[in-house]
Design a binder for these strands. Structure first.
Length: 273
DNA sequence: GTCCATGTTCTTTA
DNA sequence: CTAAAGAACATGGA
């Protein structure tokens, strides 16, 4: 469910309900989702004011008034809800906030439990994460791709190389850039890195504007699904015509993940112009 | 019953 | 040694 555009949309949907408010109560229903093991979230959060809610890669970071922070990772099926009428199944954590007047409840649910809540204390929020896709310079992306012989698809999924892309947006970006997913990352030229950088930004911006993609699970904190799935060019469209050239979209497996591309628009060998 | 799923991490293999 | 492929995690939908 959650790649950069979905996480960004969730942040936008929870921030106005949390910023400036103070934590009044914390209920942990399944301690295993809190990491590291053994941290007592109620003790750490009780009475703290939320100063900021940010995104870094796919992490949702909450900054507290004592300089400490935590982040939530949604994994595959994680979801944050504000004041939902019907409590969702697999709700592992609830946080009540108020500013004396208005009160709100933030609930974290996650059936598959690949996500979690990570206490950082005063540690860095971006350990293990590469640059932001919306900010990285093409020269920096090129330099990072040159360091690995992996297929481009696998390299772009690596959060330490670039942080925030997932299976949907890598496929969509590669199609927009006209690059084959199996092309070795180290063989991408500087010129093509510029194309790729531009394609990634355009794809992510359009997806954020549409509120992300909803395939099955994703919704923002108000329960609103995304709309970008209607604009997918290749992801989930195996056998259907490529919107650019009408050739059937092909599905292969790369780095253990289903991978969609157009064999015509994304030739394995660079086309000469 | 089978296969698949928007992610990450640990283990095994080359 | 490093890099990359594969398995594992847990649940639910088609």
């Amino acid at each position: 469910m959650p790649e950069l555009p979905e996480v960004q949309t969730v942040v936008a949907s929870i921030a106005p309900h949390l910023i400036g408010r103070t934590v009044r109560a914390v209920r942990v229903h399944r301690p295993q989702v809190i990491r590291p093991e053994g941290v007592c979230l109620p003790d750490l959060l009780q009475g703290r004011q939320v100063l900021a809610v940010r995104r870094r890669g796919k992490r949702i970071i909450l900054e507290l008034d004592n300089g400490r922070r935590l982040f939530i990772h949604l994994g595959m099926t994680g979801r944050l809800s504000i004041d939902h009428a019907a409590p969702r199944p697999h709700t592992h954590l609830e946080i009540d906030v108020s500013d004396g007047g208005a009160a709100r409840r933030l609930a974290f649910s996650d059936p598959r439990r690949f996500g979690g809540v990570f206490w950082l204390g005063d540690g860095a929020a971006d350990e293990g994460l590469g640059p932001e896709p919306l900010e990285i310079a093409p020269t920096e992306l090129h330099a990072r791709l040159r360091r690995t012989r992996r297929p481009l698809k696998a390299a772009l999924l690596d959060q330490a190389l670039i942080a925030g892309l997932g299976n949907i947006y890598v496929d969509e970006s590669l199609h927009r850039a006209g690059l084959h997913p199996l092309l070795r990352a180290c063989r991408v030229s500087a010129a093509r890195a510029v194309d790729l950088c531009r394609a990634i930004r355009a794809t992510l911006r359009a997806a954020i504007r549409a509120g992300g993609s909803t395939l099955r699970d994703y919704a923002d904190a108000g329960g609103r699904p995304g709309g970008f799935q209607a604009a997918h060019r290749v992801y989930g469209r195996a056998g259907l015509p490529c919107p650019a050239c009408a050739a059937p979209v092909r599905r292969i497996v790369v780095a253990g993940r289903s991978t969609h591309f157009c064999p015509t628009c994304q030739p394995r060998r660079a086309r000469r112009l």
